[in-house]
Amino acid sequence: MTSARRPGLGLLLVAAALVAAAAARIFSGSSGFGWPDDAIVRFRVNALATAASVGAALAVAGLFLQVLLRNALASPFVLGLSSGAGFGYMLALYVAYAFGVELRGVLGVAAPTAAATVGSIVTLAIVWRLGVRRGVAEPLTLVLSGVVVGAIASAGSTALQSLVPTGLRGEFVGWMTGRIPDAPPLGLVATVGALALLSTAIGTWLAPALDAAMLSDDEAAATGVSVSRLRATLFVLSGVLTAACVALAGPIAFVGLVAPHAARFLLGARHRPLVVGSALAGAALLVAADAIRQAIDLGGGRLPVGVLTALVGGPVFLMLLRSRAVRISGGMP
């Protein structure tokens, strides 16, 4: 795949995909295809805003992680950040329950979200320690570290589930598959949306540095990049983005992996169009998945959207594992 000569066309294509997915999400539902009545519109617009914000935020987080680790397989889910954030989130809920503190209003959203942020950044720090030697990530060591650390965090979350009463447990289980909530806390939706926009803007501004960071640390620094500052920026942004998404929608798999690759396929490898393209592609993917899931009824109600993204994203991950994208990244000799 050579780099696209005209990224404008590719961006238009991704934007059109997002518009189409959004229309599908608004017009289709259990009541069939058509303009729904007002109460349902509000419900669907909230779901649309949630899916678009989470999709864009996960995609930008995935792209930043791929740059940070020079690894085509990196994403919030694969590296265990989502699970780490999930564990932090659940731990906050559990501690509140155990001490009989009722988390209400803004605190009810902010406290677990803050705990999720700590969880995702600590996970990233651990995976970094395990998988990166002298600034060079060993692709498979890194991914395996992420999978194992993620599994440990998930086990922690499962253990917490068994410590809480049935009502809260149901909430835990539904949340752990990754879903667009029926009644999303709008403040958190706005926060995730704002974070996605801000990160897209920062990423676009930093695009030349992101390009140069594709060289080795030494060569990137010698071309003038402040490598440690760039690394810290990407570290914090991807950790915060992941945590906010997880607090809102649970650990949704593979959007952060697939969206940047879809954008690369259409736009080429340069980061100036790629950051915006990834955000749009992520939003389009998750909104589309949420629209599709409305159309599938297996008898026991609609599937959580996380199931759909895993069904599509898993095979894409396996294809990437076999492709040259992995050989290019990670600095293998």
Binding site: M1, T2, S3, R70, N71, A72, V136, D211, M214, L215, S216, D218, E219, A222, R264, G268, A269, R270, A325, I328, S329, G330, G331, P333
Partner: peptide, 14 residues
């Protein structure tokens, strides 16, 4: 300007 011993590039640039 610096050229490292082992070329490395983690992106599909031309």
């Amino acid at each position: 300007a610096f050229v490292a011993q082992r070329p490395m590039l983690a992106a599909a640039f031309t």
